[in-house]
Design a binder for these strands. Structure first.
Lengths: 209, 209
DNA sequence: TGTACATCAGTGAACGCGCGTTCACTGATGTAC
DNA sequence: TGTACATCAGTGAACGCGCGTTCACTGATGTAC
C-alpha cells in the first residue's frame, strides 16, 4: 500500500495585514490546475486548496465560492489576451501588416494556452443568474473591435475589398476561433502549419488585395 | 418542504429474450440528458438511470461503464451527422451547389443540436488509454473528405481557384467549426445570419468563382 | 520595560450530498418432465 | 395438464470517495496600558 506523502513545504500564515496575499496564491493555484488539466471544468475548491497548500475553508476569506474564483481567473485571462493583441502607438505604416499581426497574436495565445482560451470562449460562462451587466458586451469584444478597425482601415486605404468590415470581422473571428479550437480537439488530424492557416484565412476573409 | 415525487410511470421488465431493448433506452436517456444540459460533461450513470426509469446497476448489463455509454452515443451522433451531410446519387450538375449545400448541412446539424456537435468536436474525447485504432482516422473525417472532393471538383471544372483542395478544405472545416461553436459560446454577440456566414466562408475560403 | 488582550490568518473536524460500483436478492417467465 | 425449476431482467442496500460548506478553534502578532 502506497501512502501519499504530503511533501508540501510548510506554509506559514502571512504577516498581519498581508492576508490579501493569499488571494493571489489562490488564483495562481487555480491557473496552474487549469493549465495542467487542460480545462477549467475539473476545478474544485478542494483541488485549489491542495495546490495552494492551504485548507479548503481558507478560500472563503477571499472568494464567496468557486464561481467567484473562476470569474477572477477569467478576468485575468482576458487581460492576458488583451495584452497579447494590443497594438502600441508605433504601428507599422501598412495596415494589412497590423491586421495580420493581430490575428497571429490571437491565434498564438490560444495555441500556447489552450486551456485558458477554452476557459474564455469554450463554453457560455455568462449564464450565471446574478449577471450584473445586461447589455455590456464581453471583454473579448474589445479584441474584436481591433479586427473591425483593422479591416476598415485596410479597406479605406484600398488594401481590402471589404464593403462591411463589421460583418467580415465576425467571419474572421469565427474562423480563427475554429482554427485554434479544432486543432486542439483533433490532434491526430494533419493540420497545415498554424501561421499559414492564419495568413490564408485573414487574407481571404478580410479580402486583402 | 417540497418533496420530489417520482411520477415515473412504473416500468415493467422487458420480456424474456428482449433484455437488449434496455440498451436502446439507456442510449436514448443519455441523448435526452445531453440535449437538455447542452453538454455531455454532466452525464452520470445515475442521471441516465433516473432518466430511463431504472436502477443504476442495471446499466452494467449493457455497458461496462459511463465511457462505454458515451462512446455508443458518439457513434450515434456521427451517424446522424453523416446522414445529414451525405449527398445522394442524383447530385446537382453544378459542383459548387453540392459543396455549398454540404457546408450548410454541416452547420445546420451543429446549430440544431449544439450539444451533440459539442460532444463530437468540443473536446478531445479520443485520449482514452484503450484506444484500439492507432492510425485509423476519426469518423468525422469521412465528412471532411466530402469537403476535399467538393473543392477538387469545383477546381477541376474551373469553378474554384483552389490549387490545394486538401489544405483549403482544412481551412474551411475550421472556419465552419468556429462559426457554429462561437455562436453558441457568445449568444449576446450580434452575429449575422448563419446562412450568410456559411455562404461567405465557403465562397471565399474555397475560392469559388 | 513588561504584560494582558484584541485581532488577524488560517485550520481540523464534521455534515450531507451525489457519485461509481459491489453484492446478494427478487420476481416473472419459459421449459422439461 | 400440472408442476418443479432454471433462467432472465432487473433491484435495493451498502460501500468508500471527493465534493462544498459550517463551525468552533488555534496560534502568532501587534497594541494599549
Amino acid at each position: 500500500m502506497l501512502v501519499m506523502q504530503a511533501t508540501q513545504k510548510e506554509r506559514r500564515p502571512n504577516r498581519r495585514g498581508q492576508g490579501a496575499q493569499l488571494r493571489e496564491e489562490i488564483l495562481a493555484a487555480a491557473v496552474a490546475i487549469i493549465d495542467r488539466d487542460g480545462t477549467h471544468e475539473t476545478l474544485t475548491l478542494r483541488s485549489i486548496a491542495r495546490e495552494a497548500g492551504i485548507a479548503a475553508p481558507s478560500i472563503y476569506a477571499h472568494f464567496t465560492d468557486l464561481d467567484a474564483v473562476l470569474a477572477a481567473v477569467v478576468d485575468r485571462f482576458f487581460d492576458q489576451l488583451r495584452e497579447r493583441t494590443f497594438v502600441g502607438e508605433d504601428r507599422p505604416a501598412d495596415p494589412t501588416v497590423t491586421l495580420v499581426a493581430g490575428c497571429h497574436a490571437y491565434a498564438s495565445f490560444a495555441t500556447e494556452y489552450p486551456a485558458r482560451y477554452r476557459t474564455l470562449f469554450g463554453t457560455v460562462l455568462l449564464a450565471k443568474a446574478d449577471e450584473p451587466d445586461p447589455d455590456e458586451l464581453s471583454p473579448g469584444q474589445e479584441a474584436f473591435q481591433l479586427l473591425v478597425d483593422g479591416i476598415a482601415e485596410c479597406a479605406g486605404e484600398g488594401r481590402s475589398d471589404s464593403t462591411d468590415p463589421f460583418t467580415d470581422a465576425g467571419y474572421l473571428w469565427a474562423a480563427l476561433h475554429g482554427t485554434v479550437t479544432l486543432r486542439v480537439a483533433t490532434p491526430k488530424f494533419p493540420w497545415p502549419p498554424l501561421d499559414d492557416t492564419v495568413d490564408a484565412l485573414v487574407r481571404r476573409i478580410a479580402r486583402l488585395t
